Measured scan of single mutants.
Amino acid sequence: EPREEEAEKYIKRANGDYDKAQELAKKDGNEEIAEAIKEYKKR
């Protein structure tokens, strides 16, 4: 799923820090991806 791939990219950029990844996504205006990262975190 493209959303998950995007989320993974942010998580990698944030060195595995989900909260930081979420912030990066929000900064880029990717609210949807920020949500996907939140879902990811719950797994």
Rank of each mutant, 00 (worst) to 15 (best):
E1N: 15
E1L: 13
E1V: 13
E1C: 15
P2R: 15
P2C: 15
P2M: 13
R3L: 15
R3H: 12
R3G: 12
R3K: 12
R3N: 12
R3W: 15
E4F: 15
E4A: 11
E4L: 14
E5A: 14
E5K: 14
E5V: 14
E5W: 13
E6P: 05
A7N: 03
A7I: 15
A7K: 05
A7P: 03
E8V: 11
E8L: 15
E8M: 13
K9P: 02
K9G: 11
K9W: 13
Y10Q: 03
I11A: 00
I11S: 00
I11R: 02
I11P: 03
I11C: 03
K12E: 13
K12C: 10
K12D: 09
R13L: 15
R13P: 02
R13I: 12
R13C: 15
R13H: 07
A14F: 03
A14C: 13
A14K: 00
A14E: 03
A14S: 04
N15P: 01
N15Q: 09
N15G: 12
G16S: 02
G16Q: 03
G16W: 10
G16T: 01
D17W: 03
D17Q: 03
Y18E: 01
D19F: 06
D19I: 08
D19M: 06
K20E: 07
K20Q: 08
A21C: 00
A21T: 00
A21H: 01
A21M: 00
Q22K: 04
Q22W: 15
E23N: 05
E23K: 06
E23G: 05
E23C: 09
L24R: 04
A25T: 00
K26R: 14
K26Q: 10
K26Y: 11
K26V: 10
K26M: 13
K26A: 08
K27S: 10
K27T: 08
K27A: 15
K27L: 15
D28L: 02
D28M: 03
D28R: 01
D28T: 02
D28S: 04
G29N: 06
G29F: 04
G29P: 00
G29L: 04
N30H: 13
N30R: 15
N30M: 11
E31Q: 09
E31K: 09
E31V: 11
E31S: 09
E31P: 14
E32F: 08
E32M: 10
I33G: 03
I33H: 02
I33N: 01
I33M: 07
I33D: 01
A34N: 04
A34I: 12
A34K: 02
E35P: 01
A36S: 07
A36M: 15
A36F: 15
I37N: 01
I37T: 00
I37S: 00
I37F: 01
I37C: 00
K38I: 09
K38Q: 09
E39V: 05
E39I: 06
Y40I: 15
Y40V: 10
K41F: 07
K41G: 06
K42I: 07
K42E: 13
R43E: 09
R43H: 09
